[in-house]
Amino acid sequence: MDNALWTLYARPALITVGEVLAIIVPLLVAVAYLTYAERKIIALSQLRKGPNVVGPFGLLQPFADGLKLFLKETVIPSGASPVVFVIAPILTFTLALIAWAVIPFAPGAVVANINVGILYLFAVSSLGVYGIIIAGWASNSRYAFLGALRSAAQMVSYEVASGFVLVTVLLCAGSLNLTDIVLAQRHVWFVVPLLPMFVVFYVSGLAETNRVPFDLPEGESELVAGYFVEYSAMTFALFYLGEYANIILISGMASVLFLGGWLPPAPVVPFTWIPGPLWFALKAALLAFGFLWVRTTFPRFRYDQLMRLGWKVFLPLSLGWVFLTAAVLMGTGWLPGHG
């Protein structure tokens, strides 16, 4: 009995916990260093030095920031709804982490190799709006509420377009499983036939993570800091970590869906020396760098222009591309997974 309990439940549970830790710990380090990278890259593009005091080249700066936020006091505004107020940042951060369960790093190297991985990712990213809207409401503050409303409208708008982008990808791959989607890109990465969709997905990613140039929910010149204006200490830190984890997540998703995940650019010798997970990390890092580069380059969108771009440009474009892809695949007989 004891033995069965061990092999059936305890051992798989321990293995799963180990796998989860093996993803979350590097992810958190990556998040910490993404904040450092952001400050360094912005500094370099503005001919400044950026953080360079704490540790060599300022490398320990993220940990100093984390320690500072950890030691601060969590202020809950009077008139706020305390339970909901605290749940909001936890929700944001948790959602940014759990999406990684289905991202494949190498053949077989995935925590949950589920059949509907792409739907899982879409579901998790569609839940992300709750953290923000709940935070804005629970803060009982006008700035926070306005920021939350803006953010909810924005995320819902851009999700429609990115949903159609996912449909084109899975039309080409013939599967909802992310490992199958990567393997379907052995011959050609989907970025080549679906380049416009890659651009739509990346820009929608910018909008869904509330990054510049779509950072109206936290537009500091109008709303102070938007939905998290009332948050302090660790609750604030969780929002911030969630935002950066989402940037890495969107980059990882884009590299799985369009840039061939762990696959090298060509299966020839100098490329195959580099292991698969490193290819994945390189592609994701390149895309994440794009997020930071965009931040230093573009001014903020006006709100009506933001809505126009989402509904009148991206939505018809991606819908048309779904039809085009389906028609081409049917016409040429390249439709995968048939039979």
Binding site: V116, L119, Y120, F122, A123, S126, L127, V129, E159
Partner: peptide
């Protein structure tokens, strides 16, 4: 499939 559609459509 139904589970995730439920989350995407109703919750999301």
């Amino acid at each position: 499939f139904l589970a995730f559609i439920l989350v995407i459509v109703y919750v999301g």
